[in-house]
Design a protein around this nucleic acid. Structure first.
Length: 583
RNA sequence: GCACCUGUAGCUCAGAGGACAGAGCACCGGAUUCCUAAUCCGGGUGCCGCAGGUUCGAUCCCUGCCAGGUGCACCA
């Protein structure tokens, strides 16, 4: 692998050979210096100072002396107690840029390994509209899916649809009482949602409705023909709606096996818990007692015999391991369910599954309004589709104003509007709560996807002009990189402007950030990186003309921005965002 | 009551135990005969919630407290 990842490893190797530290120790101590001009990586010598009982600045000076210039692809300089490492610019230019532009769409992809990662994300409830509350699980899960796939894993995306449970009892009751088939066919999800809200309103006044709903859910579990028929109908209509939304947003799944899929595995799951001596009966219900492990007990069967969320999750995990033999199973589910997952994973461990430790809850914060949380029951939701429509409309208006000659405005507007929504959700640390704010969703300036897309479109525009209309035509800039550059670069001052250097350095950090985002399940690392890269490009753009630059410099800059284009494009793609060539 | 998460500029948020704590928004001013001004440049703000502790060094780790959020047996 070429790039700073290798460079960082290279440094770790060199320092390890000169000190008593292992490469891994050195690697974890290496940091990115706070200022440009201090190099690309720095090694603080305090830890060594302690081991060697010498002042850190002396150690830094000694190490700098012992690292010979030319012994690797960079050089080292001591500065106070730090040892700063500078990567050779021609190295970046001759090796990194051709690697990026050569690989194109494939840049950032690793060779396939034989590990499987199963990711459970999105999981909307049937018969409830897809609200912005579901957006987070969907886009975070989708980004992780794309990241791990690029890193060479076999990835299985599962949409654990909420297609079973007492809400179907409620829906059946509501539809039998107030339902209208033609209304249902017109706009199924919204209509079912209306019925759902109406049910809760009426149930306030008439508690018998809840009892009736429980009855109908029991009928459903018993396989009553009418109940099952209605369930299938509702489910089918909802799925079609969801899939339309996923298609619009470019979200993929390999499986739609939802909660109902595990219905006939629940008995044996409960039996398994019983066999392990973990099952207790209490007030007519069956539960697993986790008291000895400092956790509250978890119910597996209600007193009426119905299974619960936990029971289904157990059955699903066991099934998934049998089917996929995963190395990891990720649950991209809200932080409010942290306790559930603690219980769930502990139970898997107690049941003796060796893979229990490979299950990971990837939590995220709540979306709420200024005046409180969203509630489906109370009808306090914002439909995702409304958000998308508004964002795309807004994007289209801006395009009409700024780029009236653009041929396919609709397509660009869709990429920009959707990008803004997805990016807005990924850019901040997922654990934090977010407030839903229309102004913020519809803001396309500053730290947003459109900012990045705009940088990408600008690059494409330059490339088109340089290459007679085609962004990707090969004019052979590569030749200037392929060996020629060493002397030429120095003679002509190629890529020595601070903006150019910074761009090269930032490009070189892409793979490292990708890996970090995947390892910590935090797509925000990648999102922030892309903002940095776009920012570096915009500075470059304003200070370094490309098309009017002389000979070699022009070709060098074309190669540079082509590299930026590839990384912006691929990086956005990993987040599930498209990059228009014009906007 | 107990547990978990969060607390950084007016607002929204970055910040990988390390060098003087950074962006965006908002506000004011400037840049377009020149590759898309969704851009760029300049202008200034901080008891990093509070108090201790560990460390050569803490916004980051530990303890306590305060504030907000979320959970804690028949919803998911």
């Amino acid at each position: 692998m070429i790039g700073l990842l290798t460079f960082k490893e290279e440094i770790a190797g060199i320092l390890s050979s000169l000190t008593a530290m292992s490469p891994a120790e050195v690697y974890s101590l290496l940091e990115i210096p706070p200022e440009a001009g201090m190099g690309e990586y720095a090694f603080p010598c305090f830890a060594l100072a302690r081991l060697q009982k010498k002042p850190p600045h002396i150690i830094a000076a000694e190490l700098a002396d012992r690292i010979k210039p030319g012994s690797f692809s960079g050089e080292a300089q001591n500065k106070g107690p730090y040892l700063n490492f500078y990567i050779n610019r021609p190295y970046l230019f001759e090796k990194l840029l051709p690697e990026i532009t050569g690989a194109g769409d494939g840049y950032g992809k690793e060779e396939e390994n034989n590990h499987t990662i199963v990711i459970d994300y999105s999981a909307p409830n049937i018969a409830k509209p897809f609200g912005v509350g579901h957006l987070r699980s969907t886009v975070i899960g989708s980004a992780l899916y794309r990241l791990y796939r690029a890193l060479g894993y076999r990835v299985v995306g599962i949409n654990h649809i909420g297609d079973w449970g007492t809400q179907f009892g409620k829906l059946i009751v509501a539809f039998r009482r107030w339902g209208d088939s033609s209304e249902l066919e017109k706009d199924p999800v919204h209509y079912l949602y209306q019925l759902y809200v109406q049910f809760h309103q009426e149930a306030e006044k008439d508690p018998d409705l809840d009892e009736e709903a429980r009855y109908w859910f029991r009928q459903l579990e018993l396989g009553d023909e009418d109940a099952v028929g209605m369930w299938e109908h509702f489910r089918g209509l909802s799925l079609i709606e969801f899939q339309r939304l996923y298609r619009l947003m470019g979200i993929e799944f390999d499986s739609y096996q939802g909660e109902s899929f595990y219905n006939d595995m629940l008995d044996e799951t409960v039996e398994l818990v019983r066999e392990k001596g973990l099952l207790k009966e209490s007030e007519g219900a069956l539960l697993a007692d986790l008291e000895p492990h400092g956790l509250p007990p978890c119910l597996l069967r209600k007193k009426d015999g119905a299974a619960l969320y936990m029971t289904r999750d157990l059955a699903a995990a066991i099934y998934r391991y049998k089917k996929y033999r995963f190395s990891k199973l990720l649950y991209v589910v809200g932080a409010e369910q942290t306790l559930h997952f603690k219980q769930f994973f502990k139970l898997l461990e107690l049941l003796g599954f060796s893979w229990a430790g490979d299950c990971v809850h990837v939590p995220f914060g709540l979306i709420h309004f200024k005046d409180g949380r969203m509630s489906t029951r109370e009808g306090k939701v914002v439909f995702l589709e409304d958000v998308i429509d508004k964002a795309v409309d807004m994007a289209q208006n801006i395009i009409r104003e700024k780029n009236p000659d653009l041929a396919n405005k609709e397509e660009a507007a869709k990429m920009v509007g959707l990008g803004a929504i997805i990016f807005g959700d990924l850019v901040n640390d997922r654990i934090k709560d977010v407030e839903f704010d229309w102004d913020k969703v519809l803001d396309f300036s500053g730290e947003t996807a459109p900012y990045i897309q705009y940088a990408h479109a600008r690059i494409c525009s330059i490339l088109r002009k340089a290459k007679g209309g085609s962004v990707t035509a090969d004019l052979g800039e590569g030749r200037i990189a392929g060996g020629l550059v060493g002397e030429l670069a120095r003679a002509e001052g190629l890529l020595e402007a601070p903006e150019e250097e910074q761009l090269l350095i930032t490009l070189a950090r892409f793979k490292e950030q990708m890996r970090r985002a995947a390892e910590e399940y935090r797509p925000s690392f990648l999102a922030r990186y892309l903002l940095d890269l776009a920012r570096d490009f915009n500075k470059f753009y304003h200070n370094c003309p490309v098309l009017t630059a002389a000979g070699g410099l022009k070709e060098a800059r074309l190669l540079l921005i082509d590299g930026v284009r590839v990384v912006l494009h691929n990086g956005l793609d990993l987040l599930g965002i498209e990059a228009p060539e014009e906007m």
